[in-house]
Structures are given as structure tokens and as C-alpha cells.
Amino acid sequence: MIPCVSVSFDADADDDDAGDGEAPLLAVSGLCFAYGARVALADVDLTVWPGEVLAVAGESGSGKTTLLGCLSGELAPQAGRVGFLTRDGKRVDMHRLGEAERRRLLRTDWGIVRQNPRDGLRLGVSAGANVGEPLMVLGHRHYGWLRAQAGDWLDRVEIPTDRIDDPPATFSGGMQQRLQIARNLVTDPRIVLMDEPTGGLDVSVQARLLDLLRRLVADLDLAVVLVTHDLAVARLLADRLVVMKDGRIVETGLTDQVLDDPQHAYTQLLVSSVLQP
């Protein structure tokens, strides 16, 4: 039993089109997902523009993580489309691609940063190998070049390069998260999904990671979908904010506008429940 009907797919006629001829990198429409009878996503539409950070906020169980799973294709929605603009300007539905092609696209164009770095890293191999491996998967074989790339990326995420041969199991939580970010960015992706990237870290470690993310996103002109329950994180990193409740988007807007002048009752509750978002 699917609790919603599929809607027409007209990504490029998005209502947030600024008339500049640019097209959204990601155009999601009518996304529905249910775990048995429990609805996790109900008719979700959203767009992500090149170079834009979109935060998805909401409490636990609001469907945020399910949404990320459906975007990358790890979860198959019961209805809806996830339209992705490929480098050659074609829009493909991530869920109608063949498995091989979807995996290829994920490797070249997508990054996925998990909340728990242990889910996104290979803990038994060295930090350098963790960063070099995605490049090897893309066909790079020159050891010296791979090692130089790994060293460069460790430096960019503020991991001392003399730790390049240490396995991440010996790293602190903050270092592991920075390593996971390096592993995801080394392939020069066009869009990165992040699920609570600062969750579970000490406040001072969070601040460092947020500053790092802020700079990397700006320098690399990355598009990011950032799932967070922390409105301060959204304020700091995101251009736009989407608020989810019970699997639905209840409000969307520029981050500062949604936080400073929330329109929906649920957003008002969220904003008023935290200290100085």
C-alpha cells in the first residue's frame, strides 16, 4: 500500500528557477518511501543547485536519513524521481539507471559522509589507503601519485601527514571524521551527502570540523545535502534549509529566513526549543 501517487516530473520548470538558464544539479519530485505501513517519506520535492548547501532539519524519525538513502539510490523509493544532471548535461533518474551505471555515477560524482566515520572508512587499512582507494577504483594506478594525493588531502583536512601510514582505528573521532571527508572529496565529486557529520563529537571538535567544511565547500564549489538536527550547524553551513516532519517537507527557504522568521508551527517549535540557533 503506497500512500501517495506519483506526480509529473518537470524538474527544469522548478519554481525556484532564477531565470538565469542554470539547471538544478539534483531535482527530486514526489518521493515516497514506507517501511511496511509506516510512511517515512511522503511526496517529497526538492532541488539542489550547483555549489549550494541544502540543509535538511527535523527531529529523529522525521525521514531525514531515509531521504538521503533515497537520493543516492541505496534505498528504492516506492514512488518519485531523483533527477541528477550528469556532467554532459543529461538528466538521469538515479532509480532508473542500471545498477552498474548508478554505481559508476556514485563513484565519479557523489560523495557520502556517514554520521559514524566507522561506517564510511576502512578501519584496518592506513589513512593514506583510505584516501587513495577511491582514486584506485577510478583507475588510477601510479603509487607515487596516489600517495601524494593522499598526503595533500590529509593536509587539507588538518591531519598530520606523518599519520599517513597509521590505520584510522588509532585516530580520535574528530580525526576519523575529517579522514572520511578527505576520502569523499578526493575524487572531486559534484554532490556530497552528509548525515549529521558533527554528531557525536565534542563541541570544540565540532567547531573545527564545521570551519573545515565551510572552507572546503566554498573552495570546491560543492553541492551538499546536509542532514542535521542541529540548527546552528544549518545556520553556519547551509544556503537553504528544508524542515521535515513525519516524512513531509513543512517549510523551505533561505536558512536565515527560516530560522529568523519561521512560518510553520513545527519550525517555530524547533527554533524556539534551542538556545540561540
Binding site: 525556484d16 532564477a18 527557504g253
Partner: peptide
């Protein structure tokens, strides 16, 4: 009424706003 992206562009290129309070960013 402008789309979000147009508002962002206006803020970047055409509009400055000195609000009453500074929003400091950790470490910056």
C-alpha cells in the same frame, strides 16, 4: 517574491546589511 537564488545573488552583489549583532563563527 524573488526566488531564493535571486535573493542570494542580490545579497552577494547589490545589498549590504549591517545588523545589530554580529554572528561570530568559531575559529574564524
Amino acid at each position: 517574491t524573488a526566488p531564493h537564488r535571486r535573493v542570494q545573488e542580490v545579497r552577494r552583489l547589490s545589498l549590504g546589511h549591517v545588523s545589530q549583532f554580529l554572528r561570530a563563527i568559531p575559529r574564524v
